[in-house]
Amino acid sequence: MLSSFNRTVRGLVLAGAALAAAAFAGPALAQSKVAVITPYLAQPGTQFYVEAFQAVAKEKGWDVNVIDTSGDVAAVISRIEDVVNQGVDAIVINVDPAQVTAGLQSAKNANIPVVGMDAGSDPLLATNVTSDGVAMAETTATYVVDRIGAKGNVVMFVFDAFPPVQIRGAKADEIFAANADIKVLDRITPDVSDGGIADSRAKMEAVLAANPASGSISAVWAAWDQPALGALQAIEAAGRQGEGIVITGIDANPQAREEVAKGGNLEATVAQDFTGIGTAAAEAVAKLLAGETIADPVIFVPTKLVTKENAAN
């Protein structure tokens, strides 16, 4: 906070007087300079990463410059080029690396390491710190298997067109297939153009109509929260919430958290540890600044199962 205040002052002074700005702008020599560049600072998740990153940076005494390009991806390339020119010691990005290759290349040419903070994997990144989508799917699919006693009919909501979600569905397929008494009743890809809840609800209503007997559906596994919420609405609208149908989602968005806290059919979802991602990204930067190399192209930060017990946190 203090450093951002200093930066603010520095900026205002610059506007007023050339000489004063010149005097303020010379940073301490030994301090490592790290630039964090994102188009998405306004997103809640990104703010958590950045705050956690700054907390570590403060301890280490880095001079961190957080740059937000307000959704402009080409500007991310421009700002990477600027900080490369300025000679920063490390760069952290939070954007699809495939879209900023031009910037990453200029950093590489200048031997400045770039760390991805939930950015996606790319050979030009020293490493990418993110949540393990496969592990999240494993957590909820295993939860479903345990809750229904490894027996019964399961409805899956998947979205194979989007790779990060596709891998979740594939992991859940694998887990359900390993249980002989679990039958996947339907594998539904909802239309997500309206956000995903409404169409998932309609699809679930059709499944409920096709399976009217109590107990004919044991669980709904959704690859993210929106279809889980849609399925929950369908089950409640059909008056079948008393049948013990277990619903799980992934992402722990606020609406899903609320439903999990109520103790209804939507029993579990998985929260990504945004703070943990920021901290781990800062640790990766610390290693690189110390001259170490990072062997793993991806660093996974553990995720947390959210159930009725901890949903309020």
């Binding site: 930066r7 520095r10 205002l12 610059l14 410059n65 600027d82």
Partner: peptide
């Protein structure tokens, strides 16, 4: 302004205010 203020590590929001003010 964008290039220089980034190199001077001026906060990106302050940068917006400065550009408007100029």
């Amino acid at each position: 302004l964008d290039n220089g203020l980034t190199q001077l590590a001026v906060d990106s929001y302050i940068r917006q205010i400065l550009v408007g003010a100029i």
